[in-house]
Amino acid sequence: MARNPYTDLPDARFWRRAVAGVAPFAVDPRPAAPFPILPTDRVATGGSCFAQRVAQALRDAGYHYYITEAAPAGTPPEEAAQRQFGTFSARYGNLYYTRQFVQLFDRAYGAFRPALRVWPREDGRLVDPFRPTVEPQGFAHPDEVEAAREAHLARVRDLFETLDVFVMTLGLTEGWRHRADGAALPLAPGVAGGVFDPAEYAFVNAGAAEVTADLRGFLDRLWSVNAAARVILTVSPVPMIATYENRHVLESNLYTKSVLRVAAGEAAAGDPRAVYFPAYDIVASNINAGRYYADDLRSINDAGVRHVMRCFLDTFTPDEAPRAAAPPIASEFVGAAGVICDEEEIERSVA
């Protein structure tokens, strides 16, 4: 008989055995995976900038990284990258906060048609307010924006209905919404298009209850069209680039990540089709003493990504499934080249 409730718990439950007594690069807080990912599974991604690092790591590991909105045949690779073909599984751009996921689904299936249709840029060109950076050259006419949007949303429907695994990376709780109908925007108006008018646009900072409800709402929507879909929720370890709250950005960042971490865990609980994976916990934990951040203390270096993906592979890849060899863990003690982060437009817009 156990002497107390903790007597026979595994080593992973104890800080000294699983953290303090382990080399930082060997700490492995993997969850008990409720499902495997097979090489044939169609694995899609969406979310913040860090989702792009995850997508590349999935490709490198031999997973079937699933894309339903590919570049037109003959598009030069450089142009395809600039227009964000393949950056995510569909060209929705960065989905920083949870209301965007919900409304993306509802827009794709005709349940929500925002009043906001186009944003003008300073150069006279037009952009889609819900993905303002996917077409660097912009559009000449509102009809072109509408046509591109409808084609995109068709590919989003294809994605949701046919994916096997969706990796969602949550990045922010702060955001902007159109006051007319609550349409959630990836960037504040005036940063990459549009004109900021506080009478027309509202700043929001979601709390844990709202984020949890959004996540559960999105999951219910996804499962309504794809009951077999499996979802991996993660929180981006990349700090926010700026806060609109009247406080230090460090405080706002800790609030944001704490809310997202709590909500992701709560939303994933209780359904075997969803699981929280601790990418944020691995990178941002004090055990690494900042080793996984570049000099800007924001970009995640390659060692951090390798540690996350090694744990990811060990969690979700069955032992018998073929996969690319992981790098030796000793190499994990740089850079975000090629990662598109719409949030960085904030800094460029105020420089």
Rank of each mutant, 00 (worst) to 15 (best):
T133F: 09
V211Q: 02
K257T: 03
A2T: 09
V156D: 01
F14Y: 12
Y292L: 07
A80Q: 02
A269C: 03
P239H: 07
D28S: 15
A51T: 03
F35Y: 10
S285M: 09
N205H: 12
R131H: 11
Q52N: 06
V259M: 07
A284P: 02
R125A: 13
S252A: 15
R149K: 05
V195F: 06
S285N: 14
R113K: 05
L219Q: 10
Q137C: 02
Y255N: 03
T7M: 09
V134T: 15
Y96W: 04
L126T: 05
L185Q: 09
N205A: 13
R83E: 12
Q137E: 15
V102L: 00
Q103N: 12
A337R: 09
L254Y: 03
G47A: 01
V204K: 10
R107T: 07
Y6P: 00
S224Y: 00
H307N: 11
G93V: 10
A183Q: 11
T7Y: 10
Q137K: 14
G124K: 00
T7A: 15
A183S: 14
A23C: 03
R91T: 09
M240Q: 10
V334D: 13
G190T: 13
V43E: 04
A12R: 15
E251R: 04
R149M: 01
E78K: 02
H178L: 11
N246F: 14
Y244I: 00
L219Y: 09
C49L: 07
A351F: 05
V134L: 09
P24L: 12
V27Q: 11
D302C: 01
A213D: 14
T243D: 00
E161K: 02
A23S: 12
D296A: 07
A289E: 14
G47W: 03
A206H: 13
D158P: 00
I37P: 03
A199Y: 02
A61Q: 14
A326E: 11
A33L: 07
G21W: 04
N288K: 06
P132R: 09
P327I: 10
A188D: 05
E122G: 14
W15Q: 06
V27L: 12
V22A: 02
V283E: 02
F166T: 10
D128Q: 09
W119Y: 08
R131V: 03
R310E: 14
S236E: 12
R230Y: 00
P31G: 07
N205S: 11
T75Y: 07
W176I: 11
F160K: 01
D220T: 11
A268L: 07
W15K: 05
A80K: 07
N253D: 12
T162G: 00
P34R: 12
P272H: 11
L126E: 03
Y92K: 02
A51V: 01
A228E: 13
R149W: 00
L172A: 14
R247I: 03
P136V: 13
